[in-house]
Amino acid sequence: MLKTEKSCVASDSTITTKFGVRPPSTYSMKIQSLSQLKTLFSGTDGYKSRTFSSGKYNWRLVIYPNGNEKDNGTRFISVYVELDSTALESTVLAYLTFFVYNKKENKYFTIQDTEGKQFNALRPVWGFPRVLLLDTFSDPKNGYVFDGDQCEFGVDVMVPLTNWEVVSFTQKPSNPKFYLTIEKFSKLKEHCYVSSKFLIEGRNWVIKLYPKGYNATCSTWLSLFLHLAEGEIMKTGEEIYMQCDVRILDPFGCNHVTRKLNDNISNKGRGCLELMSLAKLANAYLDKQDSLKAEIEFDVVSTTKYS
């Protein structure tokens, strides 16, 4: 829906115009003598600002003080942005907002195209040929020309970020449980035992179990950690958020020991240094075949997509 105030002639439904406080501009330009600018650029040429940067690209603000006749802008102020495309290898998407200062209102008349424009080597210039009628703009009573013969223009060039990520959290993943059975637990001699791989939310995981504790400080405890499987590559600084329950199953009833993990998985594992004392485990949690059964159940797992 087009909203207009005072004298704007834009009629495209994708264009909005309004008076308001100054938008966060990429570049602004104050002209000390509008009449001289009109004299110097009386034909079909526009005045080009120095280059400014936005989105890692160089741009120029182009003002036609007598209107751009080639773009059907006769009798209007015409404004454009030009991309420096000399070293451009692809198309650049940008969203444009132009503004014109009105000292009488102490506000900025803005004109914005809500649809992004595709800048490339074949089309490096986009803008508006009909922003304000010259008669309206040039009359000091209207506030656009002030302090004798001054005026001010600006533009905000917003180039969307090219690097982004989308983070989602899956609750109760499909097949959220994994079971681990360690046989002849009392006779284990290795420091660490690694489970087979299991798949949760597109990632392969393993459980690392330490039957005599992770280190000397925990030598009387069973330690258990959750890791990404070997070959799973994470980007620098990437983390996976997860919630899960780690259980040591009671082989003779339902008195399972449960610990909740609520943490981020980076390149290091997460788990419990003191999951269960070895004395308690030997007393009640080994079955008749001297086997230990553990279970891990995922509640929430995050996934991240990058571009």
Rank of each mutant, 00 (worst) to 15 (best):
N58M: 11
N58I: 00
N58Y: 15
N58R: 14
V62Q: 04
Y64I: 01
P65A: 06
N68K: 12
K70L: 15
T74L: 14
T74M: 14
F76K: 02
I77M: 07
S78G: 07
V79A: 05
V81W: 04
E82C: 05
E82K: 10
T86K: 15
L88D: 06
T91M: 05
L93I: 15
A94K: 07
A94R: 02
T97I: 08
F98S: 02
N102R: 01
E105H: 01
N106D: 14
F109A: 13
T110F: 01
I111E: 00
I111S: 02
E115Q: 09
K117M: 10
A121C: 06
F128T: 00
P129V: 01
L133S: 03
T136P: 01
T136Q: 05
S138Y: 07
G143H: 14
V145L: 09
F146W: 11
Q150A: 06
Q150N: 09
M158Q: 07
V159F: 05
L161M: 06
E165H: 11
V166M: 06
V167D: 12
V167S: 13
S168A: 10
F169T: 02
F169I: 07
P173S: 05
P173N: 03
N175E: 12
Y179F: 08
E183G: 10
E183K: 10
K184F: 08
K184I: 00
K189H: 06
K189V: 07
K189P: 00
E190Y: 11
H191S: 10
V194W: 01
